[in-house]
Design a protein around this nucleic acid. Structure first.
Lengths: 117, 117
DNA sequence: GGCTGATATCGATCGTTGTCAATAGGATAC
DNA sequence: GTATCCTATTGACAACGATCGATATCAGCC
């Protein structure tokens, strides 16, 4: 048990950058631009950038360990994790009372590629 | 001649992502996060993404050739080019009555690297 | 000089978003 | 069951940003 209790990812929302064509290749279509902008918007916040870097460095982080380093209230931290999860950047897993967050594998790589990598 | 008539770049504003450490390496500092967020914010808009992709595909584009493809008014296009220039993503050069825009060399590569490349 | 055309700025509007206090939801411990 | 703890949601407010019409600035032409 434990395994996959309930992937809080909200995968249904944004497909992330998962098959975005390169920015620098050809003129972006309207829909592609909107999809890419959604992922970039999720990252375009200092608090969320630091949140992602903390998760990335630690591999896996509990929500309760984010309030301190980010110097934000619990609702605000919850809000930011939700935004990042809806963008497909973070994956949340509930274990008991705690929610553990980790990076969605390949997401940042996809984003880099969309940026002309 | 011609050369550098007047680099409208507004280089004085944001240093771009020019020496941002990797997001995935260590926890980002406050200032670094703010700097990176500024560049990402500039890109986190569908209109600006398409603008960048148009410039990237064409190499160099006149302002007057952006209104049509972007389906936005002239003041709005001017606003977006200004935002991108202040973020260090676009470089503008005035030649006569026209302003020509091109990508700031290395900027996107720097950004990709900051994203953990 | 004045006229025309390209771009930038100003002002206003309106939707979005970051933030927190208060509250609700859920899981564990007693 | 009740208490306790962690997380999510709600509601409100302030700040930001995308957009456009009107106007200003500036370069070239007559």
């Amino acid at each position: 048990m434990v395994a996959d209790t309930s992937e809080t990812t909200a995968r249904g929302s944004a497909g992330a950058a998962t098959c975005t064509p390169s920015l620098t290749a050809a003129p972006l279509g309207e829909a592609e631009a909107v999809a890419l902008a959604r992922v970039l918007s999720a990252l375009a916040d200092p608090v969320r950038l630091r949140l992602v870097s903390i998760v990335s460095a630690a591999g896996e982080v509990c929500s309760c360990d984010l309030e301190g380093p980010l110097a934000r209230s619990q609702p605000t931290v919850s809000h930011h994790t939700k935004v990042l999860a809806e963008a497909g950047i973070l994956v949340g897993e509930k274990r008991g009372r705690w929610t553990w967050w980790r990076l969605s594998p390949g997401c940042l790589a996809d984003l880099r590629q969309a940026l002309g990598g």
